[in-house]
Design a protein around this nucleic acid. Structure first.
Lengths: 186, 186
DNA sequence: GGAAAATGTTTACTCTGTAAACATGGATTT
DNA sequence: AAATCCATGTTTACAGAGTAAACATTTTCC
């Protein structure tokens, strides 16, 4: 109707999110997003500096979802399981957040602060369970936890992307908390 | 000199490898690779079906390096450390191999066979150490090992890509075997 | 020696990111 | 209320990169 659309930035990000979540970041192209939003091919540039800026916005939204869900996690296993489920539910968003982003992250300090804060949170949460541990020992445990969880996402996805989903792996995916307790949080 | 170059396929792959290793896969573009090889922009297509085909070739070479180095690993910790070092030395090749490849892997069954074989090798190697374990338990341990190692690569890279390299993480990177023994292979 | 296959070249097209100049309409100032 | 300004959307245009098609040359093989 009107020349000026309401919340165009929101809508563009929304559409991009859907494409990225359903397909992949490579499938997100400005022209198509703009067309879906019923707007000219370059309207986009009034709201985002460039395509990386849109990527950053998707990452931001990813962190938001991840954080919100995390608040309900009352144990480490549930925390880890939630992280893993997020990675499996939004694999391509997850890639943007924790993968090879191929962009200059120094332009988006809020995002690096986000992932930094997550790790700090893990460290803090760990302290009560390891009261006598040194900083280094705490750090080692935290790194190990994160690596195990982060790595599992990669492996399950790797297996899924091939026909290579064994029964055992399916079991792990269906019983994440139990798996985590049996291995990382044992 | 001559119209027909010798080993053009080799040279193209070599050049692409160097660019990919030094920069990233996104930085590899056919025109530049061809120019570096002293050949026309599309000569490439006589040796590779398309760009993904070149990517597959780089993955193949990655697996080769990874496998060769692995043969010298006489303990699990050294095996894991070797894997991690490969991931840190060739991060962008590693991404192609174990990351979000965004290509139809069913076209390259040899590559999926490769990663399949690696995991089978891990499982087999584990058996002597867990003689009484069920298939499922073995599988769980193997997945956990792989996840820990794979995840650590991701975390160290993530930290490196920001200024966020703590002293403890540097220690881990410098003492991979000790770290692995203290956590995953403990 | 000539036909067929392999390999390299030329040309040209498409898709996609983005810069630049322009248009429009709501907010702000006088 | 009229004039001005700024944020937002449009048009146009260009450049980079993947790749298909037709052509040229060299090698191979009968």
């Amino acid at each position: 109707m009107s020349y000026h659309k309401e919340n165009l930035k929101e809508r563009l990000a929304e559409i991009a999110w859907e494409i990225c979540a359903a397909e992949s970041w490579q499938k997100v192209n400005m022209r198509y997003v703009a067309e879906k939003a019923g707007v000219s091919p370059t309207a986009f540039y009034r709201h985002f500096k460039n395509k990386n800026d849109l990527k950053a916005e998707l990452m931001r939204r990813g962190y938001k979802i991840l954080d919100e869900g995390r608040k309900n996690a009352d144990t480490f296993s549930r925390y880890g399981a939630h992280y893993i489920r997020f990675g499996l539910e939004y694999p391509h968003i997850y890639d943007l957040m924790f993968g090879n982003t191929a962009m200059d992250m120094s332009l988006y300090p809020d995002l690096t602060a986000q992932s930094h804060a997550s790790f700090e949170g893990l460290l803090e949460g760990l302290k009560p369970f390891m009261p006598d541990a040194s900083e280094k020992q705490l750090m080692i445990k935290a790194v190990n936890i994160w690596a195990s969880v982060h790595g599992l996402v990669g492996i399950i996805r790797h297996a899924n992307s091939q026909d290579n989903k064994t029964e055992s792996l399916a079991w792990i995916e269906g019983n994440l908390e139990a798996y985590l307790e049996a291995t990382t949080f044992g």
